[in-house]
């Protein structure tokens, strides 16, 4: 059964109408209670839990035929899972796709917020593995639900403070917890804390989908989002102390790429669209713009595949 013969068998954006209604109701309640995790009857998708089934269901419920969809994983449009999800929607919804952040109307992401500022009318859909920010402090859903109900977040502050006592700083570098509109503590998904400031006051609508854990939550545009911290240990972002070796950006989040077995490495923008855009504008980093692209690195494993299928 080829991939193409399957497409006609499914409705627009794969999910049946009743499932979409259920997800859409959850999304609207999520927008009405920012940061609160709305339970939803997540469906089994034709991709594994952990691959973005929550994000895919949210995207499927929001997509219209007029949308331009961008899918990124680790900030890059051409990581294999981003390619796979983009293909899924090309096939099941026939939507146009783009790599340009500014041209996209819906962006599904895993682990990053694009560097290019988002705009009104855009929707950013996050794939979320563990939506419960308190889960690693209290494994029981029955307990964490109570803690949210009572806004009893002392345990989280104790954990962060223990970090400070032990390490002199908060030792959480990604999935850094935030407080939404002074109420719910929320897991921003495993984005690096570098991205946390972009959560707050963002003109775009931010939707979070956790398929396996059956939760949807949301940040409406312009929502106030504060990364948890202490007066004497204020929240601070961090990134590798380098500039991008390709485009020279000083303020973008970087991937570290090992270039040889003698300790050689380079640092490149994790946001491939941002990096390519800067190089197109003539910006150049330490290693120049011509000989290597971050996309080449993202796909460097490709070389191990035979040139044509079955050529072994």
């Amino acid at each position: 059964m080829s991939d193409d013969t399957q497409s006609g068998a499914y409705t627009f954006a794969y999910l049946d109408e009743q499932t979409k209604r259920m997800i859409r109701r959850a999304i609207l309640k999520a927008l009405a209670i920012p940061g609160y995790q709305v339970p939803f009857a997540s469906r089994e998708m034709p991709m594994p839990y952990g691959w973005g089934t929550g994000g895919v269901q949210v995207t499927a419920a929001c997509l219209t035929p007029e949308d331009r969809l961008k899918v990124i994983d680790q900030g890059a449009d051409d990581t294999t899972n981003a390619v796979s999800i983009r293909r899924f929607f090309q096939r099941t919804a026939g939507v146009a796709t783009t790599e340009a952040t500014m041209d996209a109307t819906i962006i599904q992401t895993r682990h990053r917020i694009p560097e290019t500022p988002l705009t009104e009318g855009q929707i950013l859909v996050y794939q979320v593995p563990i939506p419960e920010p308190l889960r690693f402090l209290e494994p029981r859903e029955t307990e964490t639900r109570k803690m949210h109900e009572l806004e009893e977040y002392g345990l989280m502050h104790v954990k962060l403070y223990e970090d400070i006592a032990r390490h002199g700083q908060i030792a959480t570098s990604y999935a850094y917890p935030v407080k939404v509109e002074g109420h719910y503590v929320m897991d921003p998904s495993p984005i690096p804390k570098f991205d946390n400031p972009k959560l707050s006051g963002n003109p775009a609508t931010q939707l979070f989908g956790a398929g396996r854990e059956q939760r949807i939550y949301a940040l409406p545009p312009w929502t106030d989002v504060v990364s948890l911290d202490f007066d004497d240990h204020p929240f601070e972002t961090s990134k590798a102390p380098h500039d991008c070796d390709l485009c020279g950006a000083k303020d973008s989040y970087l991937d570290e790429v090992i270039t040889d077995d003698e300790g050689g490495r380079m640092f490149v923008c994790s946001d491939t669209d941002f990096c390519a855009g800067r190089r197109a504008e003539g910006h150049e980093g330490r290693l120049g713009g011509d000989q290597k692209s971050s996309k080449t690195f993202a796909n460097s494993f490709e070389g191990i595949w035979p040139a044509t299928a079955g050529a072994r």
């Binding site: 979409k20 609207l28 927008l31 009405a32 929001c62 609508t205 545009p221």
Partner: peptide, 13 residues
Amino acid sequence: SARAFREILEALA
């Protein structure tokens, strides 16, 4: 329903 939902979503967002 997809197009209409987007309008409703925008309205509540």
